[in-house]
């Protein structure tokens, strides 16, 4: 009885979470002319036509590459700035930490649309229009607060005595940070790095407005711009979506432990 209940619950969760992915994949391997016909539910035979269509278009590969570059670049910057900042807030400030943390939350939660036009002007002034730099810079700003929040919690869990002992030993703050806090905070760095990567990978509004050609477009923009003259090319959209979800599936499978442990151990514990 319990087993059946478990199976039932699992079934619901599986169906709920996975069905859209399965349907996306099923659609992507249909023959293009059959996509707008239902039934049949399943393709009569597998076709790679949609996949070859998106790969024959060299811009798509460039778009994937852009996303990876922007994600890694912005994550690297925000990890450095964020870890240092979190250390500073947690160990160097006596007052004002609540104020800073709240301002960072405000930055994190700021409606992107409210800063998009002034930021566009800055990007334009810097000559960064339609380059990866514009996105790396802007994404860093918006993922730094995320990193600070996660790392602040991680550093707060490290006993203050450790810091004091090191100070008494005569170590400089920089040494303490790099030798003690940075290594101790690795799980937090991994999880905040993953969160930041996912944020950069998903961001849409800035990417949509700051880029105007495939030179700097990222995956979300690339997928949103798949359009035919009169209709959506659903076959190509689902093929492209399947392709970009595949690496995410792998990342999630392999980093699940870090993501969850990060959330549990050092994450937003409130």
């Amino acid at each position: 009885m319990t087993r059946a209940l478990h199976a039932g619950f699992y079934g619901v969760i599986l169906l709920w979470s996975l069905w859209p992915f399965i349907w996306q994949w099923v659609t992507s391997v249909k023959v293009p002319s059959n996509i707008s016909r239902i039934p049949p539910l399943l393709p009569e035979h597998l076709s790679a036509a949609n996949y070859s269509a998106i790969f024959s278009n060299e811009t798509f590969i460039r778009v994937i590459w852009n996303s990876i570059a922007v994600g890694l670049g912005a994550t690297a910057i925000s990890l450095v700035v964020g870890a240092m900042g979190a250390y500073g807030i947690s160990r160097l400030l006596e007052r004002g930490r609540r104020w800073i943390m709240l301002s960072l939350l405000v930055v994190l939660m700021l409606p992107q649309v409210s800063v998009v036009t002034p930021l566009y002007r800055i990007v334009d002034l810097m000559g960064w229009g339609d380059t990866l730099w514009s996105l790396i810079a802007v994404y860093s700003i918006f993922s730094v607060p995320l990193v600070v929040w996660v790392m602040y919690q991680a550093y707060e869990e490290i006993p203050e005595t450790l810091h004091r002992a090191a100070r008494v030993d005569g170590s400089s703050e920089w040494t303490i940070f790099t030798r003690v806090y940075l290594p101790l905070g690795i799980p937090g760095l991994v999880s905040s790095g993953l969160l930041s990567l996912i944020f950069c990978w998903n961001e849409f509004l800035f990417a949509l407005t700051f880029t105007s050609s495939y030179k700097a477009r990222t995956i979300p923009v690339g997928i949103s711009l798949f359009s035919g003259q009169y209709d959506f090319p659903w076959g190509e959209i689902t093929a492209a979506s399947s392709l970009v979800t595949f690496p995410i599936i792998l990342i999630v499978i392999f980093s699940q432990k870090y993501l969850v442990r990060g959330l549990v151990g050092s994450g937003v514990k409130g």
Binding site: Y10, I13, L14, S17, L18, P20, F21, W23, Q24, T27, I198, W201, N202, F204, I219, P220, V221, I223, S224, W234, I237, T238, S241, V244, T245, I248, I249, I251, V252, I253, Q256, K257, L259, V260
Partner: peptide, 26 residues
């Protein structure tokens, strides 16, 4: 189970644009 967590994380990890198109299609 670790697997259920992986499965739960999947929708969260994909870009909003992809999930929006997915639902639009469904």
């Amino acid at each position: 189970s670790a697997w259920i967590k992986v499965i739960l994380l999947l929708p969260w990890a994909i870009p909003n644009v992809v999930s929006a198109r997915l639902w639009q299609w469904m």
